[in-house]
Design a binder for these strands. Structure first.
Lengths: 270, 270
DNA sequence: CGGCGGATTGAGCGGCTTCAAAAAGCGTGG
DNA sequence: CCACGCTTTTTGAAGCCGCTCAATCCGCCG
């Protein structure tokens, strides 16, 4: 259940056409590790991953670096274009990646034409925040073995969905050094931890592929529960966001409450 | 520059009246540590802090607990009511606290009447995410001294703003044990770290107050930079969010692009 | 073949944890 | 007002997990 499909399922066919066209027109290629956005810059475009993975990271003055999130094809990287004056984080390609960079004017056109898109953006941002929270538990509470196991579980499930249809393999583009930056560990210790996982439950971490023969065992080590990914909720979720986007053409205090407000005690205020 | 004021400054006077009335009507009292929301529950209300502090936290099956965020008076705790089927985190009072719990119907009424509120909610959520990212760096990259110093800096600045007007004191409601849960350290080690900060730059951590005689020294230890709080940007920020909420009364593909679209290449698609 | 990024291995150390117990605050009720 | 029970802070000693600093190995590509 790739993220891209969730996103697309929520659009009308017309929106899909516009969306895909907009992505295709603004594709940019990045080499491994190349920065797309640097902390402190004024946001100019909306980033949507087309292929490869993208990492969001921050670094301290002395160079220590923390990877904050991984974005896979179809995902929106951030809404900074519509929110902040200056980005408070950087964005870079994990390996060679292709990314759509939608300009402000294109994005505005898109929004004006596709009434569902803001809600999808909003939903996407909120799920990203939920993933961040789970990463915080890893960083704060889990030990090395649990952290790495949990990261592998997440990456596996985000690509394959759950329940898993099959052969236990998926893409994996992170180097051990990048795993270290994401989990707050040392590259050396990540290496030892990966070996431990290999011994314990046969996990194979190849150049570009991850094999997990017995997912349940890995999940047990990590105490992994996929709830936080809010899989399968996307449809209902976007409906739930709708009230935030209802057009309010009623000028404030313009008269008595309308019929549909009758149930709410708030009418006492008008 | 308390958060509450930022929020209120962005509303029209009329919205303020409705908002304040809505908060006042739905106030609930909580005792220290009492849960307001438990992980897995179906969200029923919108939580807005009235007085005291609120903590968002998650815990692992074996009891380990990570505090994910601290909310101060005026802040919205989450948008779960409008997003997810089940909360992926818990919410509890840090000490005795008063919290407005706005029901779904009230919230919808409010949204229908106050066109600026969705944008303010959105902005609030995005700033909260930025704070979370900074906490991730602490958990992943900073040592104990830096973590605690950074937390104190943040809590100080969120209440007093920066540049700081004065006497170096602010509210502080966390116990050392709660600091430990927020920073991913042990209570014992937090204690030793606080003592170290007391020695190094005279920080005093009382029952309910924090004194920071020389903020600059503390900030230097933590390499604290307040950018991530996006202070002072709230006005512009909310304007920037606006495109996401523009009413799109134009049916898709309903005709030629309108005048204001002339500049965008997207018109080629219609 | 050499160069390079990435993975692997080893030895030693230190930051933080763990466990345990004592001291200090703080609210409550007698 | 003091005594009591509770939470919170403080202190000590021992041990481990993960870090640091190398050096080596491996696979890939020019």
């Amino acid at each position: 259940m790739p993220f891209r499909e969730i996103l697309n399922r929520l659009m009308t066919p017309g929106e899909r056409v516009l969306w895909e066209a907009c992505l295709a027109r603004s594709a940019c290629e990045y080499r491994k590790g190349e920065d797309m956005v640097r902390e402190g810059e004024h946001p100019r475009v909306l980033h949507v991953v087309l292929s490869g993975w993208v990492q969001k990271y921050k670094q301290l003055p002395d160079g220590r670096r923390q990877i904050l999130a991984i974005y896979m094809p179809g995902q929106l990287c951030d809404l900074d274009l519509f929110t902040v004056e200056r980005s408070d984080h950087s964005l870079a390609a994990v390996r060679a990646a292709s990314v759509a960079e939608i300009s402000r004017s294109d994005a505005c056109s898109l929004l004006r034409r596709c009434p569902n898109i803001p809600q999808i953006f909003c939903w996407s941002e909120l799920v990203a925040a939920a993933v961040q929270r789970e990463w915080m538990i890893s960083l704060g509470q889990r030990n090395a073995l649990e952290r790495v196991a949990h990261l592998l579980c997440e990456i596996y499930v985000r690509q394959r969905g759950v329940p898993d249809p099959g052969d236990g393999e998926c893409d994996f583009f992170l180097t051990q050094w990048q795993i270290a930056e994401a989990t707050g560990l040392t590259q050396v210790h990540v290496n030892r931890t990966v070996q431990e996982l290999r011994r314990r439950c046969g996990v194979e971490l190849g150049q570009l592929r991850l094999r997990v023969p017995h997912f349940a065992e890995l999940a047990a080590i990590a105490a992994f529960s996929p709830n936080y990914l809010h899989f399968g909720e996307a449809g209902a979720g976007v409906d739930r966001v709708a009230p935030l986007f209802e057009t309010s053409d009623m000028p404030m205090f313009a008269g008595l409450p309308s019929e549909r407000d009758r149930a709410s005690p708030l009418q006492l205020l008008s």
